[in-house]
C-alpha cells in the first residue's frame, strides 16, 4: 500500500512539473510584452506557431533537433521584429487598439499557415523516452521542460535586473520621456524588448514542437493558460509568472491526478477566478500592497 501511495505522489510531482512548464513557457513571452510594453498580444499563440513550424520544417529538412530549435527561435525573433517595426510600434500605449490589431494578425497568420503548409505537418517524435516508476511512466522530455522553464526565468531575471540593457529597458517602460532625455534610445529598447518576447514565444513553440500535434491552430492551445497566468501573476511579470505557474500548475496537477483532465481544467479556472477575486492585482500586486503597508507601519 505504501508503495502505491509513493507512486501516486510521484505521478502528481511529474504532473505538476509538466503543468508548471506549460504555463510558464506559454506565459513568459506574453508577460514580457504585456508587462513591459502594455501591449496585449492576442497573436501570441501564432508567434508560438511560427516557432513550432520553423522547428518542425527545419528538422524535416535534415537539421538535428537542437539546431532546428535554434532556427525556430531565430525565425520567430525576426518575424516579431518585422511585425513590431511595421505594425505594432504604432500601437504602444493604446491597449484596446493593440488587442484588435493583434487579433487580426492572429487570424491572418492561421489562415496563411493553412494556405502555405496545409492542415497539418508531420510531427517530430518526442526525444528521451520516459521515466518508469512502478506500473507508471512519465515523459522525460516533458519533465525536463520544467528545468528549461526555470532556467529561462532565471536568465530573464538576470537580464532585466543585472545588466545595463535591463536597466535601460525598464527605464524606458517606466518613463519613456525621462529615459530619452537621459540618452536612452527608447525606440531601440521597444524593438529589443519585443524581440525578446518574440524569441521566448519562438522558444516555447520550438520546445513543444516534438510534444504536440502540428496544425495551424495549435497556438490557441497555449492562450488560455498564458492569459490566466498573466492576470493571476500581476504587474511584476518576472516574479508573477513563476508564482502563477506554481499556483495554477499545482491546482491543475492535483485535481487532474484526483479526477482526470476535465476536473483539472475546471479546478484551474476556478482557482484563477478566486485568485482574481481575492487578489485583484494578482499575486505580485498583493505582495506589493503588503510591503507598502509594512513600510507605512514602520
Amino acid at each position: 500500500m505504501f508503495e502505491f501511495d509513493l507512486y501516486r505522489v510521484l505521478s502528481f510531482a511529474f504532473q505538476f512539473l509538466d503543468s508548471f512548464a506549460v504555463i510558464v513557457l506559454a506565459t513568459v513571452g506574453l508577460a514580457i510584452i504585456f508587462g513591459m510594453m502594455g501591449v496585449i498580444n492576442l497573436a501570441h499563440g501564432e508567434f508560438i506557431l511560427v516557432g513550432a513550424y520553423a522547428t518542425t520544417l527545419a528538422f524535416h529538412a535534415g537539421a538535428p533537433l537542437v539546431l532546428a530549435m535554434v532556427i525556430g527561435v531565430a525565425i520567430t525573433t525576426v518575424y516579431g521584429v518585422i511585425l513590431e517595426r511595421t505594425i505594432i510600434h504604432r500601437f504602444y500605449g493604446r491597449l484596446l487598439d493593440s488587442m484588435v490589431v493583434t487579433f487580426g494578425i492572429s487570424i491572418v497568420m492561421i489562415q496563411l499557415t493553412r494556405i502555405a503548409f496545409g492542415n497539418s505537418l508531420p510531427q517530430i517524435s518526442t526525444p528521451f523516452s520516459s521515466i518508469g516508476f512502478g506500473p507508471y511512466s512519465y515523459s522525460t522530455y516533458r519533465v525536463a521542460l520544467a528545468g528549461v522553464a526555470l532556467l529561462t526565468l532565471v536568465s530573464l531575471y538576470w537580464l532585466f535586473t543585472r545588466t545595463d540593457f535591463g536597466v535601460r529597458a525598464r527605464a524606458t517602460m517606466q518613463d519613456a520621456d525621462t529615459a530619452r532625455s537621459m540618452g536612452v534610445d527608447t525606440d531601440r529598447m521597444y524593438t529589443s524588448t519585443f524581440a525578446i518576447g518574440s524569441a521566448l514565444a519562438g522558444l516555447t513553440g520550438a520546445l513543444y514542437a516534438p510534444a504536440r500535434s502540428m496544425n495551424p491552430e495549435m497556438g490557441s492551445g497555449f492562450l488560455v493558460e498564458a492569459f490566466v497566468a498573466v492576470v493571476v501573476g500581476g504587474p511584476s511579470v518576472l516574479l508573477g509568472t513563476p508564482l502563477a505557474g506554481g499556483l495554477l500548475g499545482a491546482v491543475n496537477a492535483g485535481f487532474t491526478t484526483l479526477g482526470g483532465t476535465f476536473i483539472g481544467q475546471v479546478a484551474m479556472l476556478v482557482a484563477a477566478i478566486l485568485a482574481i477575486r481575492l487578489m485583484p492585482n494578482g499575486i505580485t500586486g498583493l505582495i506589493e500592497t503588503i510591503r507598502q503597508k509594512r513600510r507605512e507601519r514602520a
Binding site: 505521478s11 511529474f14 504532473q15 509538466d18 503543468s19 506549460v22 507508471y136 511512466s137 512519465y138 515523459s139 516533458r142 504536440r212 500535434s213 492551445g221 488560455v224 496537477a253 487532474t256 491526478t257 482526470g260 483532465t261 476535465f262 483539472g264 481544467q265
Partner: peptide
Amino acid sequence: PLEETDFGSTIN
C-alpha cells in the same frame, strides 16, 4: 475536453 493536449495523467 476537446482542447486537452497533455495526457500525462490519463496515461498514468
